[in-house]
Design a binder for these strands. Structure first.
Length: 648
DNA sequence: ATTAGGG
DNA sequence: CCCTAAT
């Protein structure tokens, strides 16, 4: 009677701890996510705000894209200055409207310079190293980071330059025509879909966004994206890219950063959304503790809730993945219409200056990756470098004709930013909030490729001090190995994840060489001016997916068999102690999925198959420990212990 | 910081 | 994996 449900524990000779830990099952659960208010302001939001607040309509409504046309009528007439992307650095002259796609990073930071060869990646030198030949990859010159939609608004006639990023690397000239074609086709699709009735559902939302000048680019992208997202009922999907329907974001990340910043980001997003419903009283209850994400009043429809939630999600994603180009587009429609040359005489105080910041220009990136690194690791490395640029909290500087306007209290007109002036010469500068770190403090690694360095004149060399990625493998020798299993798992990793190691090493050694504020030459390009590398990036990335190997599963099963469920920290310490990317939450989650996997038919299982033997052990351990927890609960509640359930 | 549970 | 309430 008492033997039941042990299921082979004894046969494995494992001793079962006398008492399970008190389960914390009493802990509350909830499925609603309460949003909190926050005041976080992010650099690019700030910039977007700068742009947004300066933006209003020009007199010519015909230029207003279809979606915002109606709303435009409501607004008073204003002036617009279109700051198109400029290239402060001398570059190879290319024909206009050439699509030098430059997709930076993994999450969908898209950059398509439509002007010139802004993203010339050249294989500059082959320095042979002792172990590996490193390929020096110089992402040269300005990489225009811009809303992909914008980039696609103008048809690409040629595809020059190199696209480095989420969807692969294409060497100049090698870009497939199919891709270019796809990009071209994206635009009509965007416009069409926006023109039809789909917009209605979110109309009020967009409306609100419009009013505070926040570019609804995000929402727009949501429309343009594909529908295979699991939240497609909202019509929203991933915030990026038209050119790849199979977009599976390659995330990277630092769990700690994420943990620290995630709530911040959410708060900010919430705050912003809330701020976008100024007069509609949609924000009622937002600060109510008990209220859910109820932006629209007491009874938000399910769909609506989902839409809103998705907005949040996309908001966050936009923060993370397309931080550069995000929200730089200021019109609801994806139509790219140029406001250049539309300056009008300053007739009234009511006129606004409309600054349309379409893109940021990343001056230069210098990246080193081993030849045997994967594309994925390259993407992550690029993203890493980009993230580093973003680190440290950016502030915005405004330069007019190359001169920075220091006085924040000056009006635009006083500063000379007026429609009758040459507004083409406005630059925005992004600087680190804390620029204490002097350039001298920046280390120049020995392995720096100076061959490339001399190409890129005034340079700040940013060495990554700590690897962006967790080094779960590289430090085995330094860490004591507490559990034998840890050792084995480590070994296992070094066997199974060599590429990951490579990418991490790469990441740790990757350098970014970025020009320090080149004299802002002409037309409104935004020079990103990284002066420091101090503060952690606000960019939060989803962690890269790392499926559990069989070895890991086995280690997990064994640990849980010994320690029980609900002691995930202990499990982690026992079996995954030096596997940094496996948190105890991960282990708990994995156990959950293992239990589920074990309880479904093999035909229903997906992914790498787990040996049935392991799954059996999972089930037995789960059953055993559940029973233990139940017993304990009963004891705690003073109930008589239930008779043990025995199988027939 | 951990744990539990829903997504 | 993510997110977050409750410990």
């Amino acid at each position: 009677m008492v033997v039941c449900k042990r299921l082979g524990y004894g046969s494995r000779g494992r001793r079962i701890p006398t008492m399970p830990r008190v389960p914390n099952s009493a802990r509350g659960k909830r499925s609603t996510r309460r949003k909190k208010d926050g005041d976080d302001m992010y650099a690019f939001d700030l910039l977007a705000t700068v742009a947004g607040t300066l933006i209003a309509d020009q007199d010519n409504p015909s230029n207003v894209p279809s979606i915002s046309a109606a709303k435009a009528k409501k607004r008073k007439s204003v002036k617009k200055v279109h700051l198109d992307e400029i290239l402060p650095l001398k570059n190879v002259a290319m024909e206009k409207d050439c699509c030098s796609g430059c997709v930076v990073g993994s999450g969908g930071v898209c950059a398509f310079g439509r002007q010139a060869n802004n993203c010339l990646v050249e294989n500059s030198s082959k320095r042979s190293k002792a172990e590996s030949v490193l390929e020096s990859l110089t992402v040269k010159s300005n990489m225009l980071i811009r809303d992909s939609l914008v980039s696609c608004a103008k048809p690409c006639e040629t595809n020059c330059g190199l696209e480095c990023g989420a969807y692969g690397i294409h060497h100049p000239g090698s870009s497939s025509s199919a891709e270019a074609e796809q990009m071209q086709q994206a635009e009509p699709e965007v416009i069409r879909r926006q023109a039809d009735g789909h917009v209605a559902a979110l109309d009020s939302l967009f409306d609100s966004m419009d009013q505070d000048g926040k570019p609804p680019a995000l929402a727009k992208v949501q429309y343009t994206a594909d529908k295979d997202d699991d939240e497609n009922s909202s019509g929203c999907t991933r915030p990026s890219t038209i050119e790849n329907k199979d977009y599976k974001p390659q995330y990277l990340g630092n769990h700690r950063i994420r943990k620290l910043l995630a709530s911040k980001v959410r708060k900010a997003a919430c705050n912003k959304i809330c701020g976008r419903f100024p007069s509609k009283k949609i924000c009622e209850g937002m600060s109510n503790k008990g209220s859910k994400l109820n932006l629209c009043g007491k009874k938000m429809s399910t769909t609506r809730q989902k839409v809103q939630r998705t907005i949040f999600k996309k908001k966050r994603l936009a923060h993370h993945t397309s931080s550069f180009g995000k929200e730089m587009l200021t019109e609801a429609s994806g139509t790219s219409f140029s406001m250049e040359g539309r300056n009008k005489p300053c007739e009234s105080e009511d006129y606004h200056v409309k600054l349309r910041i379409k893109s940021f220009s990343i001056p230069e990136l210098f990246i080193e990756v081993p030849e045997n690194a994967t594309i994925g690791s390259l993407k992550r490395t690029v993203m890493d470098v980009v993230n580093r640029i973003m680190e440290g909290g950016l502030r915005v500087g405004v330069l007019l004709q190359g001169k920075e306007i220091q006085d924040d209290n000056k009006t635009l007109r006083q500063a000379g930013i007026c429609h009758d002036k040459k507004l083409n010469s406005i630059d925005f500068k992004l600087e680190c909030e804390r620029g204490q770190e002097s350039p001298s403090a920046v280390t120049i690694p020995e392995q720096m490729d100076f061959l490339s360095a001399d190409i890129v004149e005034p340079l700040a060399r940013m060495k990554c001090e700590e690897p962006f990625f967790e080094t779960e493998v590289g430090n085995d020798s330094q860490q004591p190995i507490p559990a034998h299993r840890s050792r084995s798992l480590s070994d296992l990793y070094s066997v199974h994840c060599p590429v990951e190691m490579a990418s991490q090493d790469t990441s740790a050694n990757s350098q970014a060489i970025v020009p320090i504020a080149p004299a802002p030459s002409d037309v409104g390009a935004l020079a990103i001016v990284p002066l420091c590398k101090s503060k952690r990036s606000e960019i939060v990335q989803r962690r890269i997916r790392r499926p559990f190997s069989v070895g890991e599963v086995e280690a997990l099963v064994e640990a849980v068999e010994q320690l029980g469920t609900g002691r995930w920290r202990a499990v982690k310490m026992l079996a995954f102690d030096n596997i940094e990317h496996r948190t105890y939450v991960d282990l708990k989650d994995k156990w959950k999925t293992l239990v589920h996997t074990a309880s479904i038919s093999p035909q229903q299982r997906r992914g790498a198959p787990v040996p049935q033997e392991l799954l059996d052990r999972v089930l037995s351990a789960q059953a055993y420990w559940s029973q233990q927890h139940a017993k304990l609960q009963d004891k705690l509640h003073g109930k008589a212990p239930l008779p043990e359930i025995c199988p027939p």
